[in-house]
Structures are given as C-alpha cells and as structure tokens.
C-alpha cells in the first residue's frame, strides 16, 4: 500500500476539521475545533443556560458532554487515520466523574488509541478549561468505511474504496 504523502495527510485532517465545524448540532452547541496536532484533537464548548441539567444549579447536562465527546471522537478517527472515509459511531461509554459547572468552558481532548481497517478505538477526556479538572472520560468505537454516502466537504471529498 502506498503511503500517503504529508500534503494528503493535512488535507484529510483539514477537510474533517471543516466538516466537523459544519455539523448543525455542533454549531447549535457552539462547539469549536481548537487544534488537531499529532493525532490529538482538542475541541471547546462555551456553556449556555439552556444546556443546564437543573433550574437552580448551574450544572451542565451530562448529555452536552456526551455530544462533545462524540464529535471530538469522530474527528480523532480522521486525525488517526489521515484519510477521509464515512464513519459511524458503534458505541460510546461515558463516565461522569464530576459535575460540570456552567461558568467554565469545556474542553474535549480525543485521541485514536488503535486503528484497524474496519474499526477505530477512541479515548476522550472532558476537562474544565479553567482548572483543567477532569470532568468525564469517554471510550468509543467507530466503524470505518461505512456504506452509503461518500465523504464530501466543500467539494474536496475523496472517494473511498
């Protein structure tokens, strides 16, 4: 198998980054990609009051952390694989270590732990931006090269075999 060159690598990550920022649900939650560096993805989310779990506390609903982990995990598949292909989440397991306070931004740090031709194993940590306290951890499995629509973002998508 020919090894893709670095230009293709950066194109694949740039396209996946662009795709991630275009996802309607990610836009609604205000998710931003901060960096993709050596296979590690960092995303950020600024909490808003409609994301809370309770009226009276400013605790962010765990499901918002879940969405952030799913999005960061998906981008980490491309950061690890360095090629574009349709992917699908097979399963995702979240452990909520601490309540997430609504007055601090959330950071998601996701990495691809292992990659096979068919599957990507992802780990993601959700942290408080302020004190870097670990709020939640996620482990997810993504299927690679799923059937159906091919990956296109801004017309620069690549057909996968």
């Amino acid at each position: 198998m020919a090894k893709p060159n670095t230009v293709q690598h950066s194109n694949a990550v740039a396209t996946a980054w662009q795709f991630t920022e275009q996802v309607p649900h990610g836009r609604e939650l205000g998710m931003q990609v901060v960096s993709v560096d050596q296979g590690q993805v960092c995303m950020r989310l600024t909490p808003q009051s409609w994301m809370f779990a309770h009226e009276d506390t400013k605790e962010i609903c765990t499901s918002v952390l879940y969405s952030l982990a799913d999005s960061a995990g998906g981008l980490a598949v491309f950061a690890g694989a360095l090629e574009l292909m349709p992917i699908a989440t097979l399963d995702l397991r979240m452990d909520y270590l601490r309540p997430a306070s609504g007055d601090q931004a959330l950071l998601a740090v996701a990495t691809c732990r292992h990659l096979t031709d068919e599957v990507a194993f992802i780990h993601c940590d959700i942290l408080n931006e302020g004190n870097r306290e670990l709020l939640a951890t996620a482990n997810a499995t993504f299927m690679r090269n799923t059937q159906g629509q091919q990956f296109h973002a801004g017309g620069r998508g690549k057909e996968s075999a």
């Binding site: 309607p24 649900h25 879940y66 969405s67 799913d70 989440t89 159906g148």
Partner: peptide, 17 residues
C-alpha cells in the same frame, strides 16, 4: 439536531441526550 448533513442523520449525541 443533525450530525451528518450528507445522509442526513441525527447526531449521536442527540440520541445520547
């Protein structure tokens, strides 16, 4: 609530919620 606008499909996090 869309997570993939090409299919289109709901975001996995929406089902999580």
């Amino acid at each position: 609530l869309i997570g993939n606008f090409m299919l289109p499909a709901l975001h996995g996090g929406v089902l999580g919620a």
